[in-house]
Amino acid sequence: MSGNTAHAAATTFRKGNGRIDRAPYDLDTVLDIAVATFNERGYEATAISVLAERLGTSKSALYYHVSGKEELLRRALDRALDGLEAVVEASAAVPGTAADRLEYVLRGAVRVLVGELPYVTLLLRVRGNTDVERDAIRRRREFDHRVSELVDAAHAEGSLRADLDSGTTSRLLFGMINSIVEWYRPGGPLDAEALADATVSVALDGLRAR
């Protein structure tokens, strides 16, 4: 290897993390570590230097991937919200009753939660302190609203019990699904499908009109 070639290889190797003794990080890895740190320490309390230390790199190397921690937050929240919104969009093509579409959304939401657990956890913890957080809250409320519309439609068609109003039903459903982030641990006895089955059974079996 010539001197120029060796220098080029070392430069390329440094590009990902600023150190020649470590393999370069890709954006997904940076994002995973950032989300874990935000969940552990809180977004406001996490400086970019903390993220660089967790990655074993320098701040300048981290800026190679993103403009700053706000971009990391935006990408993380988008990842959670994009998955949830895709489930609602797909539910429109589900045949059957509004209750069937509601079941589809509940199952899909559980799958997204399990598949993107740290990201959904972060989404549920944002408080609207930044423009990025406020936009995420707006999108989350829109998701909630669309699910509430499904509950309303299911009540109107007689698929769900008439003695429970739509608002109460929606809040109970959201509360049940959102609480999963507090206790679910990957690798346990329940995988995503089993958890979706259990959620639908508990959430809807008592709500369906007989």
Rank of each mutant, 00 (worst) to 15 (best):
M176F: 11
A109W: 04
D131Y: 05
A9R: 09
A162P: 05
A203H: 03
L102S: 07
A198F: 12
W183V: 13
P118N: 05
S2N: 11
R161H: 06
Y104L: 06
E89G: 08
T121G: 10
V94W: 02
G42Y: 11
A194P: 05
T97R: 15
R125S: 14
V120C: 06
I180A: 03
R79V: 02
G206E: 13
D82F: 01
A47M: 13
E89D: 12
G16H: 10
V30H: 04
N129F: 00
E157W: 12
D165H: 12
D163P: 08
Y25V: 01
N39I: 10
T12F: 11
T11M: 10
L51S: 08
P95E: 10
T97V: 11
Y25Q: 02
N17F: 13
A196D: 04
L122V: 01
E89W: 00
G68E: 05
T169G: 00
G128D: 10
R54N: 12
L122G: 00
F143K: 00
Y104C: 01
G96C: 05
Y104Q: 04
A93K: 14
R185P: 00
A209K: 10
P24A: 05
A162H: 14
R101T: 01
D144V: 01
Y63P: 03
G3K: 12
G18W: 15
E89I: 04
G68S: 11
A47P: 04
T37S: 08
T168Y: 13
V50N: 03
G56I: 10
L27C: 03
A23R: 07
L55W: 07
E157Q: 13
R141P: 02
Y119G: 03
A98M: 12
V112R: 03
V132A: 01
S179K: 09
T37Y: 06
A80S: 11
E149A: 15
R127H: 08
S201G: 15
T5N: 10
T121L: 07
V151L: 11
E157Y: 12
T57I: 13
R210M: 08
I33N: 05
H155V: 13
L122W: 08
S148P: 00
V120L: 09
E193I: 05
D26R: 09
D165Y: 10
E89F: 01
E53W: 06
V110Y: 03
G188M: 13
S2D: 04
D163I: 10
R19P: 02
S179I: 05
E193D: 15
R134D: 07
A99L: 14
V88L: 14
G16I: 13
A98E: 11
G16P: 15
A198V: 05
